[in-house]
Write a protein that binds this DNA or RNA. Sequence first.
DNA 1: TTGTCTCCCTCAGGGAGACAA
DNA 2: TTGTCTCCCTGAGGGAGACAA
Lengths: 480, 480
Amino acid sequence: MAQGAGRDPEELFEELWRACAGPLVELPQTNERVFYFLQGHLEQLQEPTDPALLAEQIKMFQVPNKILCKVVNVELKAETETDEMYAQITLQPEPDQVDLPQLPEPPLQETSRPVVHSFCKILTPSDTSTHGGFSVLRRHANECLPALDMSMPTPTQELITKDLHGSEWRFKHIYRGQPRRHLLTTGWSTFVTSKKLIAGDAFVYLRSETGQQRVGVRRLVQKQSTMPASVISSQSMHLGVLASASHAIRTHSIFLVYYRPRLSQSQYIVRLNKYLESSKIGFDVGMRFKMSFEGDDVPIKKFSGTVVDKGDLSPQWQGSEWKTLKVKWDEATNLNGPERVSSWEIEPFDASAPAITMPVQPSMKNKRPRETAEGLDIHALEPAQEFWLSGRPEQHEKTSVSSSEPKHQVAWTSERAGYSAMSSSISQKLFQVTSNDARVPPWPGLSAYHADEPSSKIFQCRRRGKEGARHVPSVWRQFD
Amino acid sequence: MAQGAGRDPEELFEELWRACAGPLVELPQTNERVFYFLQGHLEQLQEPTDPALLAEQIKMFQVPNKILCKVVNVELKAETETDEMYAQITLQPEPDQVDLPQLPEPPLQETSRPVVHSFCKILTPSDTSTHGGFSVLRRHANECLPALDMSMPTPTQELITKDLHGSEWRFKHIYRGQPRRHLLTTGWSTFVTSKKLIAGDAFVYLRSETGQQRVGVRRLVQKQSTMPASVISSQSMHLGVLASASHAIRTHSIFLVYYRPRLSQSQYIVRLNKYLESSKIGFDVGMRFKMSFEGDDVPIKKFSGTVVDKGDLSPQWQGSEWKTLKVKWDEATNLNGPERVSSWEIEPFDASAPAITMPVQPSMKNKRPRETAEGLDIHALEPAQEFWLSGRPEQHEKTSVSSSEPKHQVAWTSERAGYSAMSSSISQKLFQVTSNDARVPPWPGLSAYHADEPSSKIFQCRRRGKEGARHVPSVWRQFD
DNA sequence: TTGTCTCCCTCAGGGAGACAA
DNA sequence: TTGTCTCCCTGAGGGAGACAA
């Protein structure tokens, strides 16, 4: 759907896809083995089925809770209308679904990835306003955009970029204003309109070493239109997914899964090795853990909590490991965090983690009441931005697990003292939605629009000038 | 999806739905019995499956070619994005699927339908242009719009209307210009933009006796975005549909079908009585028949042809009656007519039918190269319009089957002699696409965009002034 | 009768620096 | 350093009658 036409270096497409997907999205590799949790796949469809019928069908189709599969193929794609990324994953059930492997398999050779310069900026109301263009953060411009001829009075160039569909987007990049700053002007508003961007969404830019430029989008809230056409009944969909898997197991044939990382509530295709690692830890009631989320001002934010219960999510899937851990988040913050997680989504608690609680004073300025997500109060937004620069855009994932490649750098905005209080209220505003979507869009039972909830506390990395930097994992290097 | 909110008189919604669906769309009634042809339902999904797998699954699920069902419920809906109408039909398989009824069941009592005034006009390039509004044909204004106060110098009023989703649309209706004519100005362009209308699409307007106004859209080509989100694999979809039906048969439980009349290639939910009627006729090789299509200048146009072959469409569905008749259309015109039809879609040939062949001189004027369907050459469009006025907007369906309610009136544009030659070339232009979509959008193996095909002939109702009227079924009354 | 064109005039919005957080 | 505002000015497009098919 998105592939094929116009996409030149195949690699760049993948880099863009990952940059848009965000640092938390993890995909299995071809030839790797994974566990496929049917239950999670059905949840992705977001349409509830009659539990009795479901139970009956599970029995009829004789499908186990998790299916050991070999990954035959992974194709990255993007929805034409919304640019939502998804992966078409071809799986083949392993012949033996009873004696499941207990030992990790040798890791696959990592494929080399091209060096790219990229940034991702959350759009401000001004960025999406009809008056004027996009304000490029100085860092981003310096690190990523082609250099301007600064000897000119007002340096200007045209950026010729492509999106995931291969469509071309041209932007005038100009360095002007008093004081001077980098802006994208002509071409920007068309982009905003076409992609239906609103404040809070993020703009992704990427440039390869060969000068190829790409642009993309990471939305704050998943466009609902993902589930538009009523093509077949939800019951039929569920049955179809069950039947496909069942048939594939019986005949050792392949089947396809459309994995939508930003829609799914939890990973339901889990690398065998990852699964085994988490089983080895054996999370149990009372244990402390932490979990990664997309932050608004840093790529990854970790929140900690305690496992308070353990048990099947639904009786139809007895003995499943899908979301079996009921958790309580520290400090009752993170109001929109999931109540239940799967063990492979969390890591053991580690005192060096930067998860820190701090109180927050809500700020309620109202400006620019236009162009924000319906019902979402980001009018009160203050300059909040997330970004990262790197040779490989997804490296933060590694960073947080202590990267073995110290060359990679992450920048993290440091702001002067006195700004942080306000900034954290922003953070709160954004986070209540961002975490929601970013990590796992609609947490069960919670609307994505809770920005007005009178929550008074929130987890947040300290960001008081240099002081804040101390909490950054040591491989992170601070610019500025 | 479309229902619920804001829709006041439930009845009006149905009238609007039918007006948008067009005169050829036929729906079963609640409590009626129907045959459900799985094969047709799978075809609607438009995604081919591996035939071997399909055959295997058909066997596994033990589903017959056609399933006798009681219609438990019919809900009319419309896609949020595209306004495409569809029906959610709840079916319950009858206990006995072997001894199928041979005799028609007593017809259900017809539910009374509200009296409405409605018109449907195919949009000209001017109508969809950015300069100016919509030109209301005088007849349409007189028959359907609320009366203007003609004593004013420039009579004006505001039309407050709703669409299928309950959204409000306001239009300024003004009578001005030299010579005077009816126009919709303010509000029209927003409507065109929002509904993504292009020249060739049709605007539907409807007013109830109580003054309630409704508007809708009938598209020339079905928006492809109907099949957007890759939610589950096509294989899973097919399996899901099979499994649902199979499960419902075994347990005598209900199942849901989303019937998309403008997408489907043939009716696959057929009223029992209609089916029996057509079996009684027993179409066979060599027999002549006629079939109804949406015309561009009349509601229904009939084309005639001959059955040239009879046999299964695919070996997986042996003995099915789905599209078993291979046909040859008279005069080799109607290039986009289906090669295969099901017997319940056609009627025996009747010499009094207005299906007449006439040669055509292609006209190739090019104006206004903007705002037309991509690749579709309707630049050469001449004033061609389809419309109907009636107490009940769908009555033409009945008309052609000889209505028992002679009170209903249909108007049919009559134009002065000398215009018809040109008009037929338009007709040709439009028809090649219209018939395609209107009746049965993408004929197998044919793109919807064949307007440039050098077809030199076309079926057409004569329209030479009064002369043409003679071919109209007698219950049609001519305005003018 | 009605589709198209053109002219006129308005206003949405792009593009700039000012200003302030 | 960068988000927001305001001002200026242009051009897309709505709204009118002229004209012709």
